[in-house]
Computed example of a mutant assay.
Amino acid sequence: MIITLSIKLVSGIYAENEWACELEVAENMSLHDLHHAIQDAVGFENDHMYSFFISRQAFGSERIHFDGEEFSLDDDIASLFPLPKGKKLFYWFDFGDDWIFQVAKSRKKPREPQPGRHYPFVTTETGSKPVQYKGYDTEDEDEW
């Protein structure tokens, strides 16, 4: 079955504008695979460490990390929802630049995959995608 996730940029070193998308994914997708899907959706280079955590807020001190004790990065996305009351799921990429995205399950009902559509699939996008490396234009590398 296919479920819809809402991905929303919360913070990042160069986060100047709001950005969010709805992402259709297979409900048995792992968090490892979700990491790659978010990277593709936002257009980042997959060149840093990442983590997922559950907390009341993005910068809260009480975080449940996916370290294999209670939750694992191999867990199916569908098994995480519903989250504990008052808690949210966050994706944290690049521990230096601190790109944090909130991940929420949409209220849309799970459905069968559409024939010919490749998943994960971005259905909607709002705002402006953040620039991962502001001031480092890879097209101008010859000038270095």
Rank of each mutant, 00 (worst) to 15 (best):
S72W: 00
N17G: 02
L34C: 09
S51E: 10
A58N: 05
D137C: 01
S61A: 07
S51K: 13
E143W: 06
A15H: 06
D140K: 13
A58T: 07
A41K: 09
L73T: 03
W92F: 10
K134D: 04
W99L: 04
N28W: 01
F121C: 09
K88A: 05
A15T: 10
G68Q: 06
E139T: 12
A104V: 07
L5Q: 15
L73C: 01
E141H: 14
D75N: 14
D94Y: 00
E24P: 07
A20V: 07
W19D: 04
L73V: 00
I64A: 05
A26C: 14
K108F: 01
P130K: 03
T4I: 05
L80N: 10
W92L: 08
I2C: 05
R111H: 12
I38M: 05
F121T: 09
H36L: 08
T138R: 07
P113K: 01
G96Q: 07
E125F: 05
K134G: 04
A78R: 15
L9D: 03
H118Q: 09
A20D: 14
L9Y: 03
P84V: 07
L34W: 07
G12K: 11
L89C: 11
M29L: 09
V10T: 11
P115H: 08
W99P: 14
E27Y: 01
D97Q: 04
P84E: 07
H36N: 10
E18V: 13
K87G: 02
F52H: 03
A78G: 11
L5S: 15
D142R: 12
E125W: 09
G135Y: 00
K85W: 04
K129V: 00
I77E: 10
V131P: 04
E125K: 14
F59V: 05
D142V: 12
A78N: 15
A26Y: 14
E16H: 06
D40W: 11
F101H: 14
N28I: 01
E143K: 10
P110T: 06
W92D: 09
P115C: 00
S61T: 15
T138C: 00
D67H: 04
F53T: 06
R111V: 03
K109G: 01
M1Y: 03
D33I: 00
D98M: 05
R111P: 11
S79M: 04
H118S: 05
E62W: 07
S55Y: 04
S11Y: 07
A104L: 08
F121M: 05
G135C: 00
R56F: 01
E16L: 10
A37L: 03
K109W: 00
K129F: 00
D98N: 14
P113V: 01
D40Y: 10
L89S: 13
D75K: 12
T123Q: 15
M49V: 10
F93R: 14
E70R: 10
E69G: 04
C21R: 14
H65A: 01
L73Y: 00
Y119M: 02
L83T: 09
Y91N: 04
N46T: 12
G127K: 05
H35C: 03
D47E: 11
M49W: 03
D98R: 13
I100W: 01
D98E: 12
F44V: 02
D33P: 02
I2V: 09
H65G: 04
K105A: 06
